[in-house]
Every structure is written in C-alpha cells, then in structure tokens.
Amino acid sequence: MVDGPIPGQWADLRASRPVSEDALATLPVTLDGQDTPLSIAMDQAGFLHLLIPVRRGPAGAPPPDLNGLRVRHRRLETGEVIELSAPPSHEPVFTPFCREVADAVVVECREPWAAVAATVRNWQSAFRPLRSGMDKTVQVGLVGELLVLRSLMIPALGSAAVYQWSGPNAERHDFVGERLHLEVKTTRKGRPEHEISRLDQLRVPGGRQLLFVSVMIEQSAAGAETLATQLDATVEQLRGDAAALDAFMARMVSMGWSEEMRNSGELLRFSVRGASVYAVDDDFPRLPDGFAPPSGVVAVKYTIDLANLPELDFDEALGVVRQANPGYIS
C-alpha cells in the first residue's frame, strides 16, 4: 500500500500554496519510502489534487464529475496527467480515495484511466453528501466574525488569534481569551441596532474585559464582498501557519461552509458600511447583571441601540487586545 496522502502532507502543501492562480505546490506519492511517478498537489485556492502521469487521454468518455470531485486530462510542463481534484472540505473523503487510486495504479499496475473510472464508481456515493444551504443569518454573523478576526485579532495576535475564535462553538462570546472576551454583532439595518438573545451575553466575566464589536453591512447584488471573499482574505493571512489554517478551516466547515457555496448562488453579496468597538462598562446599554426573568419566562430577547455611544478607535482596540494577551507575538 502506498504511504500517502496523509493529513500532514495536505497541511504541508497548505503552508506552501502558490501565489499564482495556475501553479501547483506538489509532493510525490511514495511507496515504502520511495518516490512514485504520482504526486499530490494544492493550488492557490486550496483545492486538493492527485496527479497521475499518462501517455494519452481516456479511450472513451472520461469518468463523470461528482459533487466535490473533478476528473480532468491535463498537459503540464512535466507531461500529460489525470488530474483528480476536490475542495478542502472534502479532505476526509478525498484522502482515502486517492490512496485507493494510487494503490490501483502503483501497486496493482492497472491502466490509470481504467483504475480511476473503477474507483470513482466505487466511491460515487461518498462524494454526494447531503448539504443544506447556509441560512442568511448565519452568513451575516460569520461575515462579522471574520471581519473582526482578520482586521483586529490577527493584526494584534498573529495566527494564534484563530484559537480564540469561539463563535463556531456556540459559546457565550465570539472570541474568548484568558483576560478579554469579544462579542461581535452584525446588522443589515441602517442604524447600529442589535438583538441580544441571551441574558448573559453582555455580562462581563469575572476578572476579564468585554468588548462589543458592531459591524454594519449593506446587502446588495452589486456588493463586492461575500463570505467567500472574507474567507479567502483570512486564509491569505494564515498562509504561514499550517496548523492555524487547518483549525480555521475546521471551524468554517463546522458552521456549514462548503466550497460548493462559491458557485451555488446562495452567497450574500454586501458592502461593509462600518465597524465600531465599544467597551462594555456601566454605561453600555444592557440588562443589569442581577436581572432574573419572572418565573416561567425561559428566554428574553431585547434590542440595543449604540448610536451616540462613545467608541474605541482602532489603535485603542488593538492596544486593548494586545495588553490582554501579553504572551502573544504578532
């Protein structure tokens, strides 16, 4: 059996992804520690590839594309190849699929096109996952969290900021550190008004600071931004830290992100109207810490208006984050 691909190899390729759109970062597939003619690769967008050298195209119709798997005949500088590719979200399925294809070609010495066609047939149900669309409110919330991650947290803490992003874990606050929490709210309204859906959401944890970030976006078919553009910008910042990039993508997948969303038509387009940072203190509009709903009331939602509330400028906010995390080096 071939030695790979394995998750660590994808992580290595992710850390060295090319800048050019048509370039590939590659690693050879090995058998008992020796290189084989096959290789795995990753492109600028993070798509996973298996490259199998061939002398010709398929004798008949090529294997069909599946949801999350593409089969192509390509001519590279090194020669002709069968190119199998899948989005990053399909890594858990694509990895064993590639190993089976590589075994068929390298160990069993089967004709490459026939081996690929047979393996695609065997795995076709695995590449047809049921995926529900991402709700618009989830997209809006994620957009705000990614804006804060890439515009404030990563500039302050470097790639380690990813590990403080707790929004995908449904915690009380969206960013959680040892001395500082951040709550991010995003609105499509024309005013900085936000709905608070938990009694404890604006309570300051004991011995810590709490910052509130208000993000205002305008949804428009002509908007230049989408959740995908925010993700891509964040990935670019994390390119040098493979572990942090993997953790980031795992969080995105847990929230329902899939590369298929890019072409599905479900992505909201928007423009960023602005973002403001506030210290949650005695003057911040919120329910008192000791507030308890009457017996029988199991949930309370209320709306806060931040108009005319003093806000921190960017340098102040950056300083607060860094001061609360003295052990990090940005």
Rank of each mutant, 00 (worst) to 15 (best):
T119F: 02
Y163H: 09
T95V: 02
Q230K: 10
T226C: 10
D282S: 10
G327S: 11
R273N: 03
P293Q: 02
P58V: 03
S16I: 05
H90P: 07
V107D: 14
F212P: 01
L142T: 00
D281W: 05
P58M: 04
E80D: 14
G167H: 11
R55T: 07
E108Y: 07
P326S: 00
A115I: 05
S166K: 14
T30W: 06
P58R: 07
Q323S: 09
N122K: 14
A104L: 15
E316V: 06
R74P: 09
P310L: 00
G133K: 05
E171A: 07
L231M: 11
E111Q: 13
D103V: 13
W257S: 03
L149M: 03
G46Q: 10
I40E: 10
Q44C: 13
S151T: 12
S166D: 14
V213Y: 04
T95M: 04
A244N: 02
G319L: 08
V148Y: 00
R269M: 04
I329M: 15
S20P: 01
P88L: 06
A15G: 15
A161T: 14
E195L: 15
D65R: 15
F212S: 00
E77S: 15
L76M: 09
R262A: 06
L76V: 08
H73R: 03
D232H: 09
P18F: 02
L27H: 11
T119W: 03
S276W: 09
R188I: 13
V320W: 03
G206T: 07
V235K: 12
G60N: 10
D281G: 08
D246F: 08
G206H: 04
A25P: 07
V140P: 04
P88Y: 12
D3S: 08
E100R: 09
V204F: 00
T30L: 05
H49A: 08
G167T: 12
M153G: 00
